[in-house]
């Protein structure tokens, strides 16, 4: 399925860390490695889902790609150009083409601006996208496109429901005609009936505008619904990646298996062969990740070797890659034993 065309976004061996500062004098006493050697490629017009628990580094990954954090090392190549190296006009052009939709539709919109002002602010910052004379008409077009009443352009965010506000956030992201949209938990805060509406909207927009999505979420059923490929992160590292079909029918990494089995399904009796893995403990602190395999402290397969050496991300079958010393063959993972520690 992966075409020979160049990817729109290519992330190579990316590292991002934050300083840990002492309470006194704010001296740097160490670093938290939030993103630790992440690589992936995302082709134009496709959707890559990034999943992981809080502390897995998925938000830092997004912020680094969009330029809100500076990477320690590694490359972020967008449309053939290395983003951290760009400056001036080139950087502005690249930034315009990458937009973000945030999780909290209440916090992400300025309460003192009308919806029209919120959306057209971007055109003031990036002149040349939409001429000023067209702003009003363009705002109405965008509102209609995201399923809002175009006549509500002069309303303030508090006059909208949560789902409607998220649509405003989407309209704002689309205002600059981006090619890549990063959705950071974009539907997580919404009620399930509204979440489904927004998911459908995102699917439609992708089809109509040829958008490419980097879709970050903790909800695996949502990620399965919208993605072509999936990356599973744990403590800053990619532990498994592959197509949606590969990952959801035959996950090979124990962490992915555990994540999948933890998703509540409404009719459990209809899926009697579902694995039941209840992981013990919490995700360790990224300030002091375990040696070797970072997942080993919660893994039921862990052996001596896992503490000693870090497993590499290895191709198991047709681009389905996992980082585990004791991988199951993808074809056999489907009938993996029921584990219940």
């Amino acid at each position: 399925m992966a075409g020979p065309a160049d990817p729109l976004l290519s992330v190579r061996d990316l590292y991002t860390s934050f300083p840990i500062r002492s309470a006194f004098l704010r001296r740097e006493v160490g670093r938290v490695q939030a993103v630790s050697g992440v690589s992936f490629e995302l082709a134009a017009g496709r959707t890559l889902g990034v999943v992981g628990e809080s502390g897995s580094g998925k938000t830092t990954l997004a912020r680094t790609i969009i330029g809100l954090e500076r990477p320690e090392s590694g490359r972020v190549v967008f449309d053939g150009r290395d983003l951290p190296d760009l400056s001036g006009a080139e950087l502005r052009r690249a930034r315009r083409q990458i937009q973000m939709i945030f999780q909290d539709p209440y916090a992400a919109l300025n309460p003192r601006l009308t919806v029209a002002q919120i959306i057209s602010e971007a055109w003031a910052i990036h002149p040349g996208v939409v001429p000023r004379g067209r702003w009003t008409a363009e705002v109405k077009d965008l509102l209609a496109r995201v399923g809002l009443n175009p006549d509500h352009a002069d309303r303030y965010p508090h006059q909208f429901s949560g789902g409607q506000r998220q649509r405003v956030g989407i309209a704002r992201a689309l205002a600059l005609r981006p090619r890549l949209v990063i959705c950071d938990e974009a539907v997580s805060a919404l009620d399930v009936s509204v979440q489904a509406q927004v998911l459908n909207l995102l699917v439609d927009l992708q089809a109509d505008l040829g958008l490419t999505y980097l879709f970050i979420a903790h909800d695996l059923s949502v990620v399965r619904h919208i993605s072509d490929e999936v990356v599973v992160m744990y403590l800053g590292k990619v532990v498994e990646t592959g197509t949606v079909a590969q990952m959801f029918t035959a996950p090979v990494h124990p962490y992915t298996q555990a994540l999948l089995s933890a998703v509540p399904v409404p009719r459990p009796w209809a899926a009697p062969h579902r694995q039941q893995v209840v992981l013990a403990g919490d995700i360790p602190s990224p300030m002091s990740p375990p040696s070797g395999c970072r997942f080993r402290t919660r893994c039921w397969k862990a052996q001596q070797q896992c503490a000693a050496a870090e497993p590499a991300l290895v191709d198991r079958l047709a681009g389905h890659r996992s980082a585990c010393h004791f991988p199951e063959l993808p074809a056999r993972a489907r009938t993996a034993a029921v584990v219940r520690p």
Partner: peptide
């Protein structure tokens, strides 16, 4: 509500959410 929940198995079909709020 039930139709709004994306499934973990089976074909990926367009969701049929409740309209409005």
């Amino acid at each position: 509500l039930m139709a709004s929940i994306p499934g973990l198995a089976g074909p990926r079909e367009r969701l049929t959410p409740i309209t409005g709020s």
